[in-house]
Design a binder for these strands. Structure first.
Lengths: 148, 148
DNA sequence: TTGACAGGTTCCAAAATAGAACTTAGTGAT
DNA sequence: ATCACTAAGTTCTATTTTGGAACCTGTCAA
């Protein structure tokens, strides 16, 4: 199978990755969540080639994860903002950060940390089920595989 | 920057992606969470080339996300099992599934669904802060960027 | 008229992936 | 003993994707 065919799969993991599973894509979105929205800024921070960045932004716009917005004319200049669909990726990003901080040690200092606006303390993300309020673990879930 | 250099970054997003951000890697892990542990089974389900699968499994073992375990000798046969570090990725996977189901419509039926073992209902994952029990959103979090 | 800024595009070389065939070590049937 | 089959890889070539650098366009300011 080719990567492009992923979007036609039934599995939600495959479909999700067809949108955000490309190299660099989640790092572009990280920058958008940090408020960095302009081509040159993202490119400089990531050290990604302009070529690839242009491609990723185009795809994310086509998928309605980012919205390309003109912030000045003459000359026309654009920035990229998260749509609601893009903002909905926040739990994925935060879960990834939490996993990394616990399981992938930094060589120096870890670059960013997330603080609760309410308590000022370091965030301790736990994925819970809305119905019960209890943490979701591998054990607390059954998987129903459809059509197979 | 090259993809391989990501692991030396300070940012936890970058470090995490250096482990699981490769093409196909999360799909391999999805299969492991579903209990599919053997080379040929994973390869057949994913339609990934054997070459790439062997490479991914090697890297995941090197990163201690999977453990290669012999399940018979004569001839020697191996399977791949999630380590604790691998199991800790469950919230990332579930968040991704939840995002996909809400934001990336399937063409036919969505392949799998997750049910609460306790209620039997469809899982509704919410990322909460352990300290307050409240949902984590873009708005409820402040980001501290270190050394910058 | 020269330089800077911003957001790209174009080109070529290097690296990764797709697809298929081949290898190795056994098992069981003919 | 020969053949077919299983499982877990490896090897090969062709195609795609990235990496890196240079170039293009429109506008302003010196």
């Amino acid at each position: 199978m080719k990567w492009d065919e992923l979007k036609h799969e039934d599995c939600p993991v495959a479909r999700g990755l067809s949108v955000i599973g490309d190299r660099w894509t989640m790092l572009v979105l990280r920058d958008c969540f940090l408020g960095i929205r302009r081509f040159d800024q993202i490119q400089a921070r990531l050290g990604i080639t302009r070529h690839v960045l242009a491609d990723r932004l185009r795809k994310l716009e086509a998928e309605n994860v980012l919205r390309r917005e003109q912030y000045q004319d003459r000359p026309a200049r654009f920035e990229y903002r998260l749509t609601d669909k893009g903002k909905a990726l926040y739990p994925v990003l935060v879960s990834l950060i939490a996993w990394s901080e616990q399981n992938v040690p930094a060589e120096g200092e870890s670059g960013i940390s997330l603080l609760s606006r309410e308590t000022g303390e370091k965030l301790r993300p736990v994925l819970t089920d809305a119905a019960t309020g209890k943490p979701i673990t591998h054990r607390s879930v059954t998987v129903r595989v459809k059509g197979g």
